[in-house]
């Protein structure tokens, strides 16, 4: 008896964690790009956009090299956690995070840029320090764009195939996420399973799209 729910649960766990990770890095980076004069912030935005334009397998290959057992990151990870990062579900989280980062960062950056800086000036006259202005004024005023960016990042993380396959492989029950399981089912000639998994993944994706549309259309 096959455990049908396994790839879905794994996919949800991986993409939720990836969304959390990409949310922290993406929203933080978006704020730095939109609201500071840090040198190199434009370069940062371009680099963070690369996962959109790079072919997923190429992105996956670079990640595999960067995170592999002989790489500095891979060695540090292994010495801390006692197991390699590549070909584990944690590796899948990293791959999905990187693949979805540009969607979160760019959407959040646009939303933050649209916040009227005069509210931030008003907050300065209220005696608030800059970190509180960022957390209590700027981000809340940009919240709809940020939530839309997180939803897009989640959808992208959920659907990642190429980068995840390169970095985490296709290990049943451990790194076989939904998109890889669909590919696997087709390869094995199991059309019913492929259809079932595809419909489930489509429903999740359509829900995300509906959420984004609502967030963008509802008036402030």
């Amino acid at each position: 008896m096959v455990d049908w729910s396994d790839p879905l649960l794994l996919s949800l766990r991986v993409s939720l964690l990836a969304t959390a990770l990409t949310g922290i890095v993406g929203v933080g980076g978006a704020w730095v790009i939109a609201r500071t004069s840090l040198p190199g912030r434009r370069v940062l935005e371009v680099v963070a956009t690369l996962p959109i334009v790079l072919p997923p397998t190429v992105l996956g290959y670079y990640l595999l090299v960067a995170l592999g057992r002989t790489s500095p990151i891979g060695r540090v990870w292994e010495s801390v956690f006692g197991q390699p990062l590549v070909f584990t579900w944690q590796g899948a989280v990293v791959a999905a995070s990187i693949a979805s980062l540009p969607y979160c960062l760019r959407t959040a950056r646009a939303a933050i840029s649209e916040v009227d800086v005069r509210y931030e000036q008003a907050a300065r006259t209220m005696g608030l320090p800059e970190w509180r202005i960022a957390l209590q004024v700027t981000l809340p005023l940009a919240r709809r764009g940020i939530l839309a960016g997180l939803a897009l990042a989640f959808a992208r993380a959920l659907g990642d195939f190429g980068a995840t396959l390169m970095v985490a492989g296709n290990i049943p029950g451990r790194t076989r996420t939904m998109p890889i399981a669909i590919y696997d089912a087709v390869q094995a000639g199991n059309d019913a399973r492929a259809l079932y998994l595809s419909v489930v993944l489509s429903l999740v994706a359509v829900s995300v799209l509906a959420a984004v549309t609502l967030l963008e259309r509802r008036p402030a």
Binding site: R118, Y119, Q121, A122, A123, G127, L128, A220
Partner: peptide, 29 residues
């Protein structure tokens, strides 16, 4: 920095923080 100058500012268009209540707007300051 502005927050250390101890000046109160009233803007022409008020610029109350739109996502907070009136009480919060005053209490935060």
């Amino acid at each position: 920095p502005t927050r250390q100058r101890r000046v109160g500012f009233v803007f022409q268009d008020a610029l109350l923080l739109p996502h907070r209540s009136v009480l919060d707007n005053v209490a935060l300051a």
